[in-house]
Design a protein around this nucleic acid. Structure first.
Lengths: 210, 210
DNA sequence: GTCTATAAGTAGATAGAC
DNA sequence: GTCTATCTACTTATAGAC
């Protein structure tokens, strides 16, 4: 019953992954060396290689880590009271803004683009395990609203394009221009988010009966 | 009057820049070595260093190269007939789709995010010399439409967020998932673009007088 | 599981001949 | 303006002791 049996190993891995994620976000994939990760995590390089077979797998673990929590949150919102579909949709989009702009997983997008050229597997699992489910959840919310007569029957692909587009780009811009001192003035998250949500709700609004 | 006087040097540079841009887009910044660029351009590394003092400057030249043409195109559209503001706006957004999705400059965004962490100067000039002017041109088009009573007086920052957001994200997604065989099915540019434009025109539409 | 030591290779960049 | 040859620093990854 030693603590080093089934719990401790994954805890250490988790710790390493969290530290590595921070470094990857700060410096990019290529510019983050295994040595730097090891040092930051208080190990030597060789020990790090004991936990992860290679840099690709370490990065993949960083991307995967956090999915569960983010998706869980969205599912919670989606499974809420169906009587006020617009309010539910607002809550979901606000949650997406928070996730994609602030969380480590959300900010990973440009990194994944960087890495996916060398390791297409990473992009594939990011798409299948994270993007896909997110889209599914939102689609179901729209279906529900349409069925109950609260939403117009919008084109799903276009709507998702309009939902995620501005959020992801805002995140990318903020990564890109992170060194700007007037970042918040250039990209005021709350203001842009509110305008964005208003537009989406207008697009979902059922046109008056003719 | 030798041909190698004032025209040839810049022509050679231009050629190198175009080849380097392709490599950067294909492999990313860090994964593209100066040796690879030199080989692709038919030079040795040392000769490449004769043309560009370093990798940063080479990349900056790649980013800058192409601005002029893209901005010129947008300015052409913006300076056209003011009597049909909506049609002009449609044309401008269609042009942006083409530029950002297809052109080399447009597809550079995730790369710039990668590089900007190490070289903030690159991001700064990208913002000031490309993004800034683009926004200015679009804002003037809105001003014009508002002044002539064809557009509602929308929040400019929000509107730009809604214009560029979906386009840039679509470009990023297509870079990210470039290895997918069903890419066009997942991200059908023309379809998404048309739905996007419709939404934007609706947002700009002047509400009926009360 | 963690360490020291090192392999094996590649990066950006430069010196100096032609 | 282009070359050959080279330097230094750093990369991922491994071998083997403890």
């Amino acid at each position: 019953m030693a603590e080093t049996k089934k719990t401790a190993p994954s805890a250490r891995r988790r710790e390493i992954v969290e530290i590595a994620t921070g470094l990857f976000l700060e410096n990019g994939f290529a510019a983050t060396s295994m040595a730097a990760v090891a040092e930051a995590a208080g190990l030597t390089k060789a020990s790090l290689y004991h936990h992860f077979p290679g840099k690709e797998e370490l990065f993949a673990a960083c991307v995967t880590h956090g999915y569960a929590a983010e998706l869980e949150r969205l599912r919670d919102i989606a499974s809420g009271d169906a009587s006020d579909a617009p309010e539910k949709m607002r809550a979901a989009i606000n949650a997406l803004y928070e996730t994609i702009i602030s969380s480590q997983v959300g900010r990973m997008s440009p990194l994944i683009a960087e890495v996916s050229r060398s390791f297409p597997t990473v992009a594939r699992s990011f798409h299948d395990d994270y993007i896909g489910p997110q889209h599914e959840i939102l689609c179901k919310m729209i279906d529900e609203g349409v069925a109950s007569g609260q939403f117009a029957d919008v084109d799903r692909k276009v709507f998702l394009h309009l939902v995620f587009g501005p959020i992801v780009t805002l995140s990318l811009s903020r990564e890109m221009f992170a060194t700007f001192q007037d970042l918040e003035e250039h990209f005021p998250v709350a203001h842009l988010r509110d305008g964005h949500v208003d537009m989406l709700m207008q697009a979902l609004a059922k046109p008056l009966a003719v």
